[in-house]
Amino acid sequence: MGRPSPVSQYEAQILEWLQEPRAPEDGLIKGQEILARLRQQGYTGGKSAVYELVRRIRPKEPPKPILRFEGLPGEFSQHDFGQRWVTFADGTRKLVRFFASRLKYSRFVDIQIVENEQQETVVRSLLKGFEHFGGGADDGSFLTT
């Protein structure tokens, strides 16, 4: 509305700068850099107008596709600790810690309530999870390869 912004006369130049090839590690040209270049060309207007124009005319990047990390049956599993606050029927709250194991292909999950996140807990939880998934013999022979 009203009179045009003083930066509008530089729109073609700014668009040219936005389309300049840049090294990937440099990233997109920043509004600050465009403002500095405009100042060298005699622009005396405000920075907000420049930043708004850059935002409006910057070529939009298409959204990056979501890539799923897939595996074959028996190839991958994920394991991690987690914690959640649980409210019981009597109104009391408690922080519950758990160890979760998940088979990547089938998405089969094993969750165990644990007291801590120490090394012994990791090993015991992994062993119980492997047994739950049907991956070992009762004598522990699945540990030797």
Rank of each mutant, 00 (worst) to 15 (best):
R55D: 15
R55A: 04
R55P: 14
I57R: 09
R58F: 08
P59F: 00
P59S: 03
P59M: 00
K60D: 00
E61D: 09
P62D: 00
P62E: 00
P62S: 00
P63N: 03
P65M: 05
P65A: 05
P65C: 08
P65D: 03
I66P: 04
I66H: 06
I66F: 01
L67R: 03
L67V: 12
F69I: 02
F69L: 10
F69Q: 13
E70M: 11
L72N: 07
L72E: 14
P73R: 09
P73G: 01
G74D: 02
F76D: 09
F76E: 13
F76A: 08
F76H: 00
S77P: 11
Q78G: 12
H79K: 03
H79T: 08
D80Q: 13
D80M: 01
F81H: 02
Q83T: 02
Q83N: 09
R84V: 04
W85N: 06
W85H: 14
V86D: 07
V86S: 11
F88N: 09
F88R: 09
A89W: 02
A89L: 08
G91R: 12
R93Q: 00
R93W: 15
R93G: 14
K94D: 09
L95F: 05
L95V: 05
L95Q: 05
L95I: 12
V96D: 06
V96P: 13
V96Y: 03
F99T: 10
F99D: 00
A100R: 02
S101P: 05
S101T: 04
R102Q: 10
L103M: 00
K104Q: 15
K104T: 15
K104F: 08
S106V: 04
R107Y: 10
R107M: 12
R107V: 07
F108S: 07
F108A: 04
F108R: 09
F108I: 06
V109I: 09
V109W: 07
D110H: 05
D110G: 11
D110I: 13
I113P: 06
V114K: 01
V114E: 07
E115Y: 09
E115H: 03
E115I: 10
E115G: 04
N116T: 09
E117V: 08
E117N: 13
E117S: 02
E117F: 06
Q118V: 01
Q118A: 08
Q119I: 04
E120C: 14
V122Q: 15
V123Q: 10
V123R: 06
R124A: 11
S125Q: 08
L126Y: 07
K128M: 05
G129W: 01
F130I: 08
F130V: 13
E131R: 15
H132G: 06
H132V: 15
G135T: 10
G135Y: 13
A137Y: 05
D138R: 02
D138T: 02
S141Q: 12
F142I: 14
L143P: 13
L143E: 07
L143G: 11
T144N: 06
T145R: 11
T145C: 10
